[in-house]
Design a binder for these strands. Structure first.
Length: 220
DNA sequence: CTACCGATTGACT
DNA sequence: GTCAATCGGTAGA
């Protein structure tokens, strides 16, 4: 059951609080191709101050501008030719965000599979046979349910999220938003905490949160 | 314009 | 655990 898009006031709170509360909520994406839904099982918090791993640490730039805007908007950035989705938190001007790292596919699974396998077509339209050694990791067979959205960039591929959605208002309930799962939020004892993955600074901070017994997290 | 870096992923030891 | 592919963002000449 869904109680509708999470409201602005949900995001307008401490980033760590929002991160924990996002676990169990439903990420929804609607395009002309159809609708995909996933249960959020893994997130990371990026603090507005004293956090060198935060893209906004060095100040506002063109890339991180969304993080300096009002809460409840998307911050989508590129890394290694892939996209990652954040939800902006705390009041406008306070640059903090929650990285959505993994979701459990709930609806639109075949659409997710199509989008994931489409990477075989490569960015320039090269046919899969020719791109096999060209750096485009084509996926020929059916990808397992567990792998479809396990990881921030995999998730964005399965949900057709890219730069066009940077700055998108997640509270409107159109195209891309996060539904309040109502009773879907797990009790705190099911939430595990760890260091953030992949960051090269501030790697000791316990800012990664995930559902301890979910097989859909990027790693335990 | 060039040079460098990385909140990733997939393959491999 | 290690390693590199690959390209947008960023800083600097």
């Amino acid at each position: 059951m869904s109680a509708g898009p999470l409201p602005r006031r949900f995001y307008d709170r401490n980033v760590v609080t929002v991160a924990r509360d996002l676990l169990g909520q439903r990420l929804v994406r609607v395009t002309p191709d159809g609708r995909t839904v996933g249960r959020i099982v893994e997130v990371e918090a990026y603090l507005p101050r004293d956090d060198p791993a935060n893209h906004a640490y060095g100040g506002k730039t063109r890339r991180n501008a969304s993080m300096f805007g009002p809460p409840g908007h998307a911050y989508v950035y590129a890394i290694h030719s892939r996209w990652c989705l954040n939800a902006v938190t705390e009041p406008a001007g306070v640059a903090s965000a929650v990285l959505i790292r993994a979701v459990e596919p709930l609806a639109g699974v075949e659409l997710m599979r199509e989008r994931r396998s489409a990477r075989a077509a490569c960015h320039d339209g090269t046919v899969p046979e020719r791109s096999a050694q060209g750096g485009c990791h084509g996926r020929a067979g059916r990808e397992s349910l567990r792998d479809l959205a396990r990881g921030p960039a995999r998730l964005c591929e399965a949900f057709a999220i890219d730069r066009a959605l940077d700055g998108w208002d997640l509270t409107r309930g159109e195209a891309l938003w996060i539904d309040d799962a109502g009773d879907g939020a797990p009790p705190p004892r099911e939430i595990a905490v760890s260091r953030r993955i992949g960051v090269t600074s501030a790697h000791d901070l316990p800012l990664r949160f995930y559902l301890a017994d979910s097989p859909f997290v990027s790693r335990p």
